[in-house]
Each structure stands twice: as structure tokens, then as C-alpha cells.
Design a protein around this nucleic acid. Structure first.
Lengths: 184, 184
DNA sequence: GTCTATACCTTGATAGAC
DNA sequence: GTCTATCAAGGTATAGAC
């Protein structure tokens, strides 16, 4: 990936999180990078290509990140995930899923599929982590790990949405209570 | 509120939930109602006026609805709320908060304030209901009722988002596990 | 309350020179 | 790879007749 392409993806990622996929334009990419509208279209012909680029970049980064956490005890792995969300929260950002899923119906099919796979990625990892943590007596919870992963995932995702409206202390309260529920 | 105004608000409500505030236009309102673009502007001069109209309509309806539930035992009140969300889910809709909070940064200040108040409305009611339910031994949960309300609210809100991407069984799993956690 | 007509802007996207 | 130039389409919003 060229350096320019990389900068475009980074900026688009920010814009999606801060304003939403349907609320930014190629102009918002081109201007800060001091290039022309058409130059952006050279790298990403259609807007959905740009969206897909952003998601794939995020999925790769996520895969690399959880690989680094691999040896940590499960409760610390989860805490690391929460820290990632906290950083987003204090930067005023929401997560990609939280931004793209409301717009899902307006997205091109190939971009929809990418969103779907991103959701499956993170749920799969979280289910595994919860399951292992329970096995090692580091977590306690009722029901299936996959269902618990859904609950925690929705907590984190929507906590960023609510924080945007009601302030960042919302995130703190949610993440603390969530951890307290889980630790024996 | 005139009948026409009412139809406009209903349709705008649908469009916000299905496609998002920044992804529908006055044309999408005017055409199905067989009127002209300008006629819609007569009722709602700016798009933010329309957005505010939709939110206020929803807040009023919510207030009327919870008043009707007032005499029910708390776990049934919560189940009623879940049923409302389930209906949205199967219609392919998300909740207003779930749709408007990602777009929050792009909204006019007076519309932002309305979104904020809507969030406070529902959190206030849910906190009270949880607190009363715990007092009457119909609910069990750790921590403050206000924090628990945040967890449950984010579960419900984001369950509609995830259902849109991964299918409606996501909502079923989340709402069941959520209730099971809460019932002694 | 609704219409026609229109002003004015931004959008996503393309063609072709360099 | 980036540019200038341009496109058609669609957006919000307003003026003024009926």
C-alpha cells in the first residue's frame, strides 16, 4: 500500500467515525491532504472502494492486535479491548461498527459484506476469550459464551454512541460495571 | 398537529430509522405523500425542524406508553419495552437513538439537544423501573440502578444495529440472556 | 396549504493532458 | 499519480402565484 493510499485510508477512517459514511465527501479527503478530488478517485474509484479499504485496514489491525494479546490472562485481554474503546471515546470517535451499521441499508453490497465479516471477527474472538476465561476461572457468567459476547459487544459499541450524546463518563460507568459483573 | 404534518413526521421517522438522517431527502418525503418538495418545506422549513418534530413525536409517544405500563409489575414493564424493540427489529428498523447518535456531530445544535433529552427520558425511566423492581425482589443485579440501566439500554440499542448486519436472531439471543441475568 | 419555478450548492464520478 | 476541467444528478431552501 502506497503512502498516499495509506493517508487516504487513515483520514477516511476518522471521517467515518466522526461524521458517518454518508456525511463526508471526497473533498473532505482531498483538501487536508492537499490533493485534488480526482486524485483520490484514482486510488479509490468509487466511494464503496474507499469504505472497503477502511474496513479491511481495520480488520487487519484488529487481527494483529489480538495476536499480541495472545499470552495475557483473559481478563487482561478484555481490559485491553476496553482500553482501545476508551481511547476512541476520549477522541470523540465511535467504533466502525457503530458508525457503519446504522448506514448498512445504504451501503453497496460488497461493502455490506465487509461490515458483516468485521462483526464476525470481533464476536468470534470475544466468544473464545470469554469461554477460555471461564474455563480458567477468571470470568464468571451465565449462559453461552457466544451470547455473553453479544451482550458485551453491544455494551461497548453503544457506550460510544451514548457517550457522544451524554458525555464520556457514560463510557466509564458502563465499562466498570461490565468488568465487575464478569470478575468472580 | 394537522393530518399532513402527522404523515410527514411518520414517514420521516421511518426514513431516519431505515436509512439515517443524512441519507434521506425532502424528495423522499414529498413523493410518497404525493406532494411537492416545497409543500414539505412549508410545514418544516429546515431539515432540522423535521428532525426535531420526529424526536418530539417519539418522546411524547414514549411518555404515553410508559404511563400505560405504570401498574404492571416491573419485569413485565421491561418485557414490554423489549417487545417494542423486537417489533422494530423485525421491521428492519433501528431505534431513533441508534440512528441519530452516530450522526450527532453533523446535527444542528437544537436538534442535538432534543436527542440528548430523549436519551435522558428513557434512561430515567429505566433506572426507576430497575430500582423499583429490585426493591420488590423482582430483579436482581449488582451496582447502581442507573449504571444497570446504561448496560441494558446499550444492549437493546446496539442489538438492533447488530441484527441489521447479522440477522434478527441476534436480537432474540441478546434479549433473552438479558432477561435471564435480571430475574432472580 | 399547496403549487411552479428556480437559485444555488455539493456530490460522486469521468475524460484527457501532463 | 496527479492535475484541470467538466458532468449530470441530487441536495436544501426560497419567492411568489393560486
Amino acid at each position: 500500500m502506497s503512502e498516499t493510499k495509506d493517508k487516504i485510508v487513515s483520514l477516511a477512517d476518522q471521517l467515518i467515525r466522526v461524521r458517518g459514511f454518508n456525511a463526508f465527501s471526497y473533498k473532505d479527503i482531498a483538501e487536508p491532504l492537499e490533493m485534488k478530488n480526482a486524485a483520490v478517485h484514482y486510488h479509490f474509484p468509487a466511494k464503496s472502494d474507499l469504505g472497503i479499504g477502511v474496513i479491511q485496514h481495520d480488520r487487519n489491525r484488529f487481527a494483529a492486535t489480538i495476536a499480541k494479546w495472545n499470552k495475557l490472562p483473559e481478563q487482561e485481554q478484555l481490559q485491553q479491548l476496553i482500553n482501545v474503546f476508551r481511547k476512541h471515546c476520549h477522541a470523540g470517535n465511535i467504533c466502525l461498527m457503530g458508525s457503519l451499521s446504522p448506514d448498512y441499508n445504504t451501503l453497496a453490497p460488497d461493502m455490506q459484506q465487509e461490515v458483516q465479516q468485521m462483526a464476525e471477527d470481533i464476536l468470534h474472538w470475544l466468544s473464545q476469550t470469554l469461554e477460555n476465561g471461564r474455563k480458567h476461572k477468571r470470568f464468571q457468567f451465565k449462559g453461552k459464551a457466544a451470547d455473553r459476547a453479544l451482550l458485551i459487544m453491544t455494551n461497548l459499541q453503544a457506550s460510544l454512541l451514548m457517550s457522544r450524546v451524554l458525555g464520556p463518563e457514560i463510557f466509564t460507568r458502563i465499562s466498570h460495571q461490565l468488568m465487575e459483573d464478569l470478575i468472580p
